[in-house]
Design a protein around this nucleic acid. Structure first.
Length: 464
RNA sequence: UCCCUCUUAGCUCAGUUGGCAGAGCAUCUGACUGUUAAUCAGAUUGUCGCUGGUUCGAGCCCAGCAGAGGGAGCCA
């Protein structure tokens, strides 16, 4: 293997401006077409959606072997980049030497045809080699970088909030338990598990949100964000929920609800524009093969301002709609999926902030409004995906926060450290959480969260 | 967790009133001097999800179980 020669990346070869000789290219065969005396291999190295056509002629010593290698095999090719005489591609690689690095036989699960996403999920260890998943994971990588770029350009501090937490009451769902106790013989006190003998000396679990720790850092660095994995042990079986997912949570001091909505809108639009600017080929692929109309929708979104509507106005809209909803619309109950879809898809026809929800259906840390009935909360709803961002202005007034904790039966001692930032140097602050996978669903048009995360974890499923 | 649907060849799927298990693609063999998920000709491929029941006879009807998908709730 001529490893000393540098490897040329296919995406840069396809954009070449002139022929080049003596190149070394490596990749996986997507198809091998054999004619008399000549064969063509469509080679992909993951650097882009497009394949590089390798031209192999009969005079190569291992011509028969190479043309038998078939779909899925891994090749190293030494050859010259030349203008292609055929119409389908500008450049092709005329092979001088082909080495089969790894053969693939007929059992190879990915064939040169379209597979269902359900089937590809069952071979999630190989699906990155499929066109759609190549596009998904290139976009995922690019957008991860875009998230950091957006915040770093604005001087936000990136903070690594803990994965293991001992907060049992973050108000965001069930935690996965983290323990080193012997499940067959846990230490007992009065018939109950004695968590004080566990590894951390108390009950611990995986984080459901970095928000509370994010707030601590916001009261020191003013503008911060987190971007990391989040875990929820909810028995949710839907196309929009996963047990392990990635969340982006900015927390900003000295802004109110309107300010945090503006940040969320700028952020979301930035990410859409980034995908259009940097992942054009992949987005176009999704538009053609996965979700027709996607490109227009994204281009439009990058320009139009988002709608804003208070919860109370939303209720009025729904009540006046004349629609026969499965769930009744009354002030004080939460908006159902059907209501959210009506508002974002039919009333506004684009992303919509719904703000100022009744306090009883929202978390304890959200700031009480002057009407004493609502809190300074916001959800960003988008067509097709639904709720993509949830955020709020946080309650910075200690007595009011303590009162809210009491209403939720949360012992004050368990969150004394959280209350401390209200005791000393408290300030108005606000933040939100964006589900990274839901963002990717919106950007790709993929309809199942399991298909935008490399190895999905859902109830009953943690394979690979 | 609840409701609905699905499970047949490696993949995608058809299978009539309960009466011999099918097609396309893939694979294999052959043909073709440049193909574009090549094309053309031929060939191979089955625990009909599992367990039980009804019946002379079950892929088809019934029951249970398992897995998957869609919807709902919870949320990001």
């Amino acid at each position: 293997m001529a490893a000393t020669r540098p490897r040329s990346v296919i995406t840069s070869l396809l954009g070449a401006t002139q022929p080049q000789s003596g190149l070394r290219v490596c990749g996986w065969a997507r198809s091998v077409r054999k004619g008399k005396g000549v064969a063509f291999v469509a080679l992909n190295d993951g650097s882009c959606l497009a394949h590089l056509q390798i031209v192999i002629t009969e005079d190569l010593a291992n011509f028969a072997e190479v043309t038998r290698a078939g779909t899925g095999a891994c090749f190293e090719v030494i050859g010259d980049l030349v203008a292609s005489p055929a119409a389908e591609q500008q450049w092709e690689l005329q092979a001088a030497k082909v080495t089969i690095l790894g053969a693939a036989d007929a059992e190879y699960p990915l064939q040169k045809k379209r597979h269902s996403f359900e089937y590809l999920r069952s071979v999630a260890h190989l699906r990155p080699r499929a066109n759609t998943f190549g596009a998904v994971f290139r976009l995922r990588s690019a957008l991860s970088f875009a998230v950091h770029r957006f915040f770093q350009e604005r001087g936000f501090l990136y903070v690594h909030t803990p994965i293991i937490t001992t907060n049992d009451c973050e108000g965001a769902g069930e935690l996965f338990r983290v323990t080193t106790l012997d499940p067959r013989h846990p230490p007992l006190v009065d018939g109950q598990v004695d968590w004080s003998q566990d590894f951390f000396g108390e009950k611990a679990g995986l984080t459901v949100s970095g928000q509370l720790q994010g707030e601590l850092f916001a009261t020191a660095f003013s503008d911060i964000y987190t971007f990391g994995p989040t875990f929820r042990a909810e028995n949710s079986n839907t196309s929009r929920h996963a047990s392990e997912f990635w969340m982006i949570e900015p927390e900003v001091a000295f802004v109110d609800l309107a300010g945090i909505c503006q940040l969320a809108e700028d952020f979301f639009r930035y990410l859409v524009q980034y995908a259009l600017d940097h992942c054009r080929e992949d987005v176009r692929f999704f538009d053609e093969r996965v979700a027709p109309g996607l490109l227009d929708r994204l281009q439009q979104l990058a320009q139009t301002p988002f709608g804003r509507m208070s919860y109370s106005d939303a209720i009025e809209h729904l009540q006046r709609s004349g629609r026969d909803f499965a769930f009744p619309v009354t002030w004080g109950s939460d908006l159902q999926t059907e209501h959210e879809r009506y508002l974002t898809e039919e009333v506004v026809g684009g992303p919509l902030f719904v703000t100022d929800y009744p306090k009883d259906i929202k978390a304890f840390y959200m700031r009480l409004n002057d009407d004493n009935k609502t809190v300074a909360a916001m959800d960003l709803l988008v067509p097709r995906v639904g709720e993509i961002i949830g955020g709020s202005q946080r309650e910075e007034r200690l007595p009011l926060l303590e009162q809210r904790l009491a209403e939720y039966d949360i012992p004050v001692e368990s969150l004394d450290w959280y209350l401390d930032i209200r005791r000393w140097g408290s300030c108005p602050h606000a933040g939100f959480g964006l589900g990274f996978e839901r963002l990717l669903m919106y950007l790709t048009g993929m309809e199942n969260i399991r298909d935008v995360i490399p190895f999905p974890r859902t109830p009953g499923q943690a394979r690979f």
